[in-house]
């Protein structure tokens, strides 16, 4: 059940370079949100910019009724959102979309986040980690070390590995390169991933080669967020037989093997 809500900002901080962490008081969303779902946020109340911006849910504190978003300032909408202060209200629509569904029987789960793709994976780790018998690896890739240090898995029982394009921290190269190196040792039985298209496409090829199942969270320019305007289309099916599905309502998380890249 999604809702349109005016949510009070509990905190709003710069966490790295151009990244912000926005904590909203919204018990209604916190109670029902699932990892991989998103909030559709009005960055300001005016007609310009007009559309909402979709942000995946980074963390949820059900007890305190808090929902955290992690976002990068990339354009006018996010720049305006970045000016909003503690105690002000932000209008959100959500939680929306179909989230991650890691099968119970999968015991060795690898989560791959490229850049801001790490945002939804944190919430997923929190949910998966409830089952301490399951082994979880998080592979986090970024351009440089400064873009990595703001997601703190802290006490969560995960094996965290990082990759940077410039080699300033961890594995030098792409997070998919890191995945290739680790896969023989880790022997994953499930992969959940979010990140740029190029990364997901390369990861999908590697997963197909290894015969690994999993899910990808996709991004597309979005209109309504609730499945009506059919603007945020992606190709789902097989290369020979696909149809357009809606990232907002049929996704944003899709079976990795069914994503047909443009």
């Amino acid at each position: 059940m999604s809702l349109v809500l005016d949510c009070r900002i509990v905190s709003h901080h710069k966490v790295a370079l151009d990244c912000r962490r926005l904590v909203l008081a919204t018990p209604e969303v916190a109670a029902v949100a699932r990892p991989g779902q998103f909030l559709h946020v009005r960055c300001n109340g005016t007609a310009d910019p007009l559309l909402r911006r979709p942000f995946s849910i980074h963390d949820v504190d059900r007890e305190r009724g808090l929902v955290t978003l992690l976002y990068r300032v990339v354009g006018r909408g996010t720049a305006l959102l970045a000016t909003r202060r503690k105690r002000q209200k932000v209008n959100v629509l959500g939680p929306l979309g179909r989230g991650f569904q890691v099968p119970l029987e999968c015991r060795r789960v690898v989560l791959v986040g490229g850049g801001m793709g790490i945002a939804p994976l944190f919430f997923l780790v929190r949910e998966l980690a409830v089952d301490l018998t399951r082994a979880i690896w998080v592979l986090h890739g970024a351009r440089t070390a400064g873009e990595l240090n703001f997601v703190n898995f802290g006490a969560l029982p995960v094996h965290l590995r990082v990759a940077t394009d410039d080699g300033s921290l961890g594995f030098r190269g792409s997070v998919v390169g890191l995945f290739k190196e680790l896969a023989p040792e880790v022997q994953p039985d499930w992969v959940s991933a979010a990140g740029p298209t190029g990364m997901l496409r390369a990861l999908g090829q590697e997963m197909r080669r290894l015969g690994l199942p999993g899910e990808f969270s996709l991004e597309e320019r979005m209109g309504c967020g609730i499945g009506a305007c059919v603007c945020c289309s992606c190709r789902i099916g097989s290369p020979e037989n696909w149809n357009y599905q809606r990232v907002c309502a049929d996704g944003p998380v899709f079976p990795a093997g069914e994503v047909v890249w443009e």
Binding site: A47, D48, P49, L51, R221, V230, C231, S233
Partner: peptide, 15 residues
């Protein structure tokens, strides 16, 4: 089937 994405772009006070 409709057109290939992206299908939406924001412009000043419009879509």
């Amino acid at each position: 089937a409709g057109n290939p994405p992206p299908r939406i772009a924001e412009t000043p006070a419009g879509v």
